[in-house]
Amino acid sequence: MMSAVQLNHVTLKFKKFEALKDISLTLEAGKIHGLIGRNGAGKTSLLSLIAAFREPTAGEVSVDGAFVFENPEKMEQIAFIYDKDYKEETEKAKKLIALASHYRPHFDMGYAEHLIKRFKLPVDKPVNKLSKGMQSALNVVIGLASRAPVTIFDEAYLGMDAPAREIFYKEILKDQEEHPRTFILSTHLVSEMDYLFDHVVIIDQGRLVLNEPYETLEAQGASVTGAAQDVEAFTATMQRLNEQQLGGTKSVMVYGELGETKRQEAHALGLEIGPVSLQDLFIYLTEEAN
């Protein structure tokens, strides 16, 4: 069960403020898409349109070719999990899980119970009495166990400690292998989550900045590591994203494709060429856009 998401010239305005500006993109079915952007970039606005929480001001949002807004067949295929304010939620966690199973056609209660154990979620406690991390774990349990063909996690890990986040990432990969679906993961923790992504979308100030398969990002730049003086000379004319030095060894992230000649030159100088990190690319692209 997986679906493709299409956005066609989508604009979203809040009175005079333009949260999304003419965004067109296709999120391929069965892939894990990373949606990256700085605070206020428009990530949540974009996701809320996909989940039919609101209508775009202009343009169309569709799933498998059919418009999403007020389309019951499409809406039930989309699970949008976000950092929900639970301070007024007095129901027990198990009640909210049962509610999701009532509405979600592909909900797997057995899997939900497995996840409850993995996260050690106290399901008999009222949700507003749970810690922030446990509230996030509850959201993740509902999102994963719903097995919606389009599953969206918008900063769903907030408040989770490192081991819990690790469980979350592992469960995404494991379940994607067994029950493939279209995941959209919106995050700030780029370096921690980049290994999950098949495809990366970067937005900044409501505009689409990058929309590429993760593998092709390697061609967008490179890391050059070696003797500090050689690295310095080799990258002098290049666009530097980041640099680190330890003793006489230096590592510089550069933006732009390295041609075969340059690679051979680096090899001759004894420099190591590696892939560019998504985090550095993200910082560079969003700073450049600003």
Binding site: A52, E70, M75, I78, A79, F80, Y103, A148
Partner: peptide, 12 residues
């Protein structure tokens, strides 16, 4: 809000 979040349309 709970219904829409669970994939139910406004009409339903």
């Amino acid at each position: 809000g709970r219904h829409i979040q669970q994939g139910v349309s406004r009409r339903d």
